[in-house]
Nucleic acid binder design. Structure first.
Lengths: 149, 149
DNA sequence: TTTCTTGCAAACACTTTGCATGCGG
DNA sequence: CCGCATGCAAAGTGTTTGCAAGAAA
């Protein structure tokens, strides 16, 4: 995740305006980066900093940021989309119990050249995820009779 | 993807009924397995085989199948969810141009034991995707002035 | 001043649900 | 005949869009 100054700079360079709402949203993203927050959570947090932040502004700003490659949008169907600032290729470990997302440095990665040679496919971005249960949820469920939901 | 007989058998064993609608849906899944069809496409195809198939039955049946681990549901936000019968761990190459999904055998995979040791996370299922452009879309776009959208 | 941004509400697309009817076993 | 399955329509959800009013530059 870039720091606040470089994001502001990137915005100005593109002719985008720096508004208090955007500042609040960017601050939330930086503070909660490890949480991989969703739009709703970002909205609620940003609202604490500045009451005049609307949900559509949050969506607009997140769209702007991910369109410019400053953050990454993790799209889901069953749960709301999440946003992360870690742009390095890595694996996301996603807990089915509590929704927590853990970044895991991936020693694995496909060789784009080889993939292109074999399939003609030009790789751009990745989405590497494993679903399961985090330590806390494993313990919580173990206590309650070992049923694995 | 299992064959039709084993799916029917699996259904019977669970006390689930074999209806003409379900037969039609399962047949579509097997014929179009390489296409990774969405619920809408499955609905339209199944309807060709048997007019009395409704969209809710398609959703119900797909839900049943994926809940039992017979097929895998690939969840998206921007595009409709897709379903696949290939349950081996593999990478999906997803074309941003036409939505095509190519199965790519992944020589790489995380060691669940190592992940558990390091993070406490219990891995269950994976979702390994790369986004980019397929051969056809690369060519199509190249012809039109090299702009990479 | 000019253009981009905001915020409300309405639209959206896909999926799920409630419930009466229907059919498989 | 019993119970799950079907199909319609309606609800639901997170996200996007249209547009007038407002604020950055």
């Amino acid at each position: 995740m870039m720091n606040r100054e470089s994001i502001v700079k990137a915005f100005r360079e593109k002719g985008l305006k720096i508004t208090p709402q955007r500042i609040a949203i960017i601050e939330v993203l930086m503070e909660k980066n490890d949480d991989h927050p969703g739009a709703g959570a970002i909205y609620r947090e940003a609202r604490k900093k500045r009451r005049s932040v609307s949900l559509s502004t949050v969506y607009a700003t997140l769209g702007e940021l991910s369109r410019r490659g400053i953050i990454k949008k993790l799209q889901f169907d069953q749960m709301e989309n999440r946003y992360e600032g870690n742009l390095e290729e890595h694996v996301n470990l996603i807990c089915k119990g509590c929704g927590k997302i853990i970044d895991y440095e991936a020693p694995v990665s496909l060789d784009p050249a080889k993939v292109a040679r074999k399939t003609g496919f030009q790789m751009l971005d990745s989405r590497l995820e494993y679903y399961g249960y985090c330590r806390e949820c494993v313990n919580r469920l173990k206590g309650k009779g070992d049923r694995t939901p």
